[in-house]
């Protein structure tokens, strides 16, 4: 009796086992399979624009894509209504970014300020993903002022016109809505106004983006020059706050800043470019980006 019972038990056990094997859940198979796959998932849209506000962000345009960027800075707002809070005056930079390779961008721009032409290279060293905790970009630019030399007794040389910038950008998207960036910067100006002013200055930049809706984010950017010698008039602080509006095809960035120039060697510690103390240089500005694909074919 006992034996028969135990036999029955085994039989039942096997049947149950078999049933569980039949409906061997496809989900559990899928889940087990999932664990085997190790895809690298890159983080999207740490920032929306290739420029945070004034300075560069870690974003690049993709290979074979070209971005046209219009940047506008109005005049200082402290003249009140006479200047229509600065809107009577405007400084412009028109720039192009092009993706030479997936991680390399080349760019060219022309500014009203000092009639400067700037060229730059931007290389993505690392992309934030599930294996790498941050994105890093190396940025180097050269700007040539093409404004006429003043008619004075001095001998002027072409090299006076050239300014350089080297930046190491490091950023992380912490959550879906919060991204931050740190930007150590070296700037070299071949010509400075006074002997006491440093030709090479070191600055550190901070950037933040916080998404308040699907398409709108708040941006903040701050460059500090901690110890280099500057002209007495120039400020050590370049500040900008603004909004990032993604309209689907364009990125529209609207902001307040105390810088008039839109090239690193201008908006960091150069009083010619409007970086002065106090409220004297707060102005309204915007950046408008549009990306075009060039000669790209659909992968099929």
């Amino acid at each position: 009796m006992n034996l028969i019972k135990s036999k029955k038990n085994i039989f039942f056990l096997l049947i149950i086992f078999k049933i569980s094997a039949v409906s061997q859940n496809l989900d559990s198979l899928l889940n087990a399979n999932e664990k085997k796959i190790k895809e690298i998932n890159y983080v999207y849209a740490t920032f929306k624009g290739t420029k945070l506000i004034n300075g560069q962000s870690i974003e690049l345009v993709a290979k074979k894509e070209m971005q046209i960027m219009f940047q506008h800075r109005f005049g200082p707002m402290n003249n009140g209504l006479y200047d229509f809070i600065g809107l009577d005056l405007a400084t412009i930079r028109i720039g192009i970014d092009y993706g030479l390779a997936p991680r390399l961008n080349i760019g060219l721009g022309r500014s009203t300020n000092q009639k400067a032409i700037d060229g730059f290279l931007k290389y993505k060293l690392s992309k934030q993903s599930n294996t790498i905790p941050f994105s890093a970009v190396l940025f180097t630019s050269l700007a040539i002022n093409t404004i006429k030399f003043p008619t004075d007794a001095n001998q002027h040389q072409f090299s006076e016109r050239i300014n350089y910038c080297l930046q190491f950008l490091i950023a992380r998207k912490f959550t879906g809505s919060l991204s931050m960036q740190l930007t150590p910067t070296l700037i070299h100006r071949n010509l400075v106004l006074k002997q006491t002013t440093d030709n090479t200055i070191f600055a550190i930049g901070y950037g933040i983006r916080y998404k308040i809706s699907k398409r709108i984010a708040i941006l903040g950017e701050y460059f500090l020059i901690p110890f280099s010698h500057l002209d007495t008039e120039a400020s050590r602080h370049t500040l900008a706050i603004g909004l990032d509006i993604d309209t689907g095809g364009h990125i529209f960035q609207l902001h307040f800043t105390n810088a008039e120039g839109m090239i690193e060697s201008q908006f960091i510690g150069l009083n010619d470019a409007g970086i002065r103390h106090g409220l004297k240089s707060i102005r309204l500005g915007f950046n408008l980006n549009r990306v075009f694909s060039i000669g790209k074919k659909i992968k099929k």
């Binding site: 496809l26 989900d27 198979l29 899928l30 999932e34 895809e39 998932n41 999207y44 849209a45 345009v61 993709a62 894509e65 699907k214 398409r215 993604d246 689907g248 990306v291 694909s293 790209k296 074919k297 659909i298 992968k299």
Partner: peptide, 25 residues
């Protein structure tokens, strides 16, 4: 029975901006 699992961030668009919008928005 059939079961399919699709990783949403692996959709490849011909324009990277579209891909970003797809993932973001």
């Amino acid at each position: 029975e059939v079961s399919i699992l699709i990783p949403n961030n692996q959709f490849q668009f011909k324009r990277s901006l579209m891909q970003e919008h797809f993932n973001e928005n």
